[in-house]
């Protein structure tokens, strides 16, 4: 293939109208010929570059990084949910089983609400009786407000 043909092919190439076969011919020509006229030197460099690019390989091994991470996330969220659920049950059980101390009577804790109510009633009743007996002597305070009565006595 002479330079005229090559130049024509290059023109086609630059217009984006060359076929893959024609482009292969160009690549072959420029890779095989060392003495290229200066005006076509760019093409030699360019096709050499494209050829070299195609030999670049991905040398790393495939690692199952993300899938493993994904499984871990699922497992983790599963564990977290289970823990949360377990905690919830433990806590709610604890709450219902926990006895509320309503009062201490003679150092004994009263946790039964009915006994506590009964005891409270009794205490209130006893206290009010004590108060009502005491109140009688207070009636005399009212007499102080009446000077006539005071004088009579």
């Amino acid at each position: 293939m002479d330079y005229r043909e090559i130049k024509t092919l290059l023109e086609k190439y630059l217009e984006g109208e060359s076929s893959i076969q024609e482009e292969d011919e160009l690549k072959r020509f420029f890779n095989e010929n060392e003495n290229i006229p200066e005006e076509l030197l760019f093409a030699k460099k360019l096709f050499r570059f494209f050829g070299d690019e195609k030999t670049i390989e991905y040398t790393k091994e495939f690692e199952h990084k993300k899938p493993r991470r994904k499984i871990n996330l699922y497992t983790l969220s599963g564990i977290a949910a289970t823990l949360l659920l377990a905690l919830f049950f433990v806590f709610s059980n604890y709450k219902t089983k926990e006895k509320i101390i309503y009062a201490y009577i003679n150092g004994e804790a009263i946790t039964d609400i009915n006994i506590a109510k009964e005891q409270t009633k009794q205490i209130l009743y006893a206290t009010s009786q004590k108060i009502s007996t005491g109140i009688e002597s207070l009636n005399r305070v009212g007499d102080l407000m009446n000077p006539e009565l005071l004088i009579k006595k």
Binding site: E57, F62, K65
Partner: peptide, 28 residues
């Protein structure tokens, strides 16, 4: 296909490490 994917990523990103990352990602 790993080499093609890697070369294409490298051409778009012009960064070898990032292209490797993308290649790994694509196959994952």
């Amino acid at each position: 296909l790993k080499d093609k994917v890697f070369r294409y990523a490298r051409a778009i990103l012009s960064d070898v490490e990032e292209a490797e990352d993308v290649t790994q990602d694509i196959f994952e």
